[in-house]
Amino acid sequence: MKLVVQVKLLPSPGQASALEAPLRACNRAAAYASQVAFAKELKDRNGLQREVYTDLKATFGLSAQPVVRVVKKVVDAYAVLKANLQAGNLGPPTAKRYRKAVGTPIAFRPEAAQPFDDRCLSWQYDARTVSIWTIDGRMKGIRFACSPDQLKTLVAHRKGERDLVRRGGTWFLIATCDIPDPEVYEPTDWIGVDRGIVNLATTSDGTNHQGRRLSRYRRWQARKRAELQARQTRSATRRLARRAQLRQFCLGLPRELEEAAIVDGCGHWRVYWNIVLPMSRPILSALAILFFLANWNAFVWPLVATNDQSLTVVQLGIASFQTQYGSNWNYILAAATVAALPMLVLFFVFQRQIVESIKTSGLK
């Protein structure tokens, strides 16, 4: 089992400057190697290393082993990019992100993490110091800090590369530890709890406790969602988005308030009426406004459903000012202004609720 241990380096100002130089040099070398790999389509480690090995040593002042680490970092980056493309994580080939990813070489930040192996970095556990390769030679005596458990894990199980990372002006070393898998045993007298995703509670004998009411509600939600998705209309898409927005808002409500009310003796209905509903006023107000706007601006349904001129809505009235022989633009613009007034009034009256609901639900 792989486990990552992060330790904090405590370099002096002079040591910090010496650490920054090789980090930036390695990332400049990685950017150069990435451009060569992209231009010559060299994605294998041996081929790219033969192509750039001499240039990286001469141009960027790197020794042999850091050059090997830089080449491996570039090859790994292109391997990850290829996997993301194949998995569709960047969209279809026609997507802008996809075309940008395949059309430009991979770039490396000046302070991106740099991997080191045992020939570039060594540990002195008793003194809690490390020795790291730099452009000016080996730098020894860099102190590090970690918990006793982390130190014990490093001593017993450290294996593989270490990454030198600078984050927010602080230096870290991230080491990989290969820990033996724990012994498999049959658990007894325990309950595993899944908070509302699939099962609420499942005991070790396989008994599932989630309640008929919850199962029925989940099936109803899945059926409604499938019905809306099958319609493939703008109205159905809008309703799906509103349902998702309302659900996201409700998931963000503090569970502690509900639990405190239950402890005080409130039932489910009182928790909903006195806690959940008052806290949901912003999202309910915003959804009510959005539904009003959608119906206020509706054109096709009133055109199909009404034949009586006395029942004509304002959008149909605006359309009636346009004929095949001409348009009464003064009437059209005046009617459009009148039609926009209720929406403007609603926004200015309820703008606080709209902003609050969007901010809390995470809608982008």
Rank of each mutant, 00 (worst) to 15 (best):
S147W: 07
I262Y: 02
K82N: 12
E111D: 15
E256H: 06
L341C: 09
W133Q: 11
K57Q: 12
V7K: 08
F38H: 11
S357T: 06
G192A: 13
A29V: 01
I106Y: 05
F299R: 04
Q49E: 09
D163S: 09
Q309P: 09
P93N: 08
G137C: 08
W301Q: 10
Q6W: 05
P180C: 05
M343N: 09
A319I: 06
C250N: 05
M343L: 14
C250I: 13
V198F: 03
Q248I: 00
K96A: 11
C177L: 04
R143D: 07
N46A: 13
F299H: 02
A77V: 07
A77C: 08
K159C: 05
D136F: 06
E161S: 04
L56V: 04
N89V: 08
G326F: 04
A127R: 15
F38R: 01
Y125A: 14
R99E: 14
K364W: 08
A175L: 11
S147P: 03
V349F: 13
R243E: 11
G91K: 03
V355H: 13
G326H: 07
V313C: 11
I318V: 15
A30N: 02
T129M: 10
L311M: 14
E256T: 15
V193F: 15
D55V: 06
R158T: 05
Q86L: 12
L341S: 08
R239L: 07
A83F: 03
V80H: 11
E256N: 05
I358D: 01
S320E: 15
A101C: 07
V5Q: 09
H209K: 04
L23H: 00
T337K: 05
T207F: 06
L251F: 10
A226L: 03
T129N: 04
T337R: 04
V198I: 11
S17A: 15
A79W: 01
Q150T: 03
A64M: 02
Y32C: 07
A95V: 03
R219S: 12
R50I: 00
L173Q: 06
F292N: 04
S63T: 14
T202R: 05
A222L: 13
V7R: 02
A79P: 02
Q315W: 10
D205C: 07
S12R: 11
M1P: 10
R281H: 12
D118I: 06
V36H: 04
A230W: 02
D136E: 15
P282V: 05
R270W: 09
A286T: 04
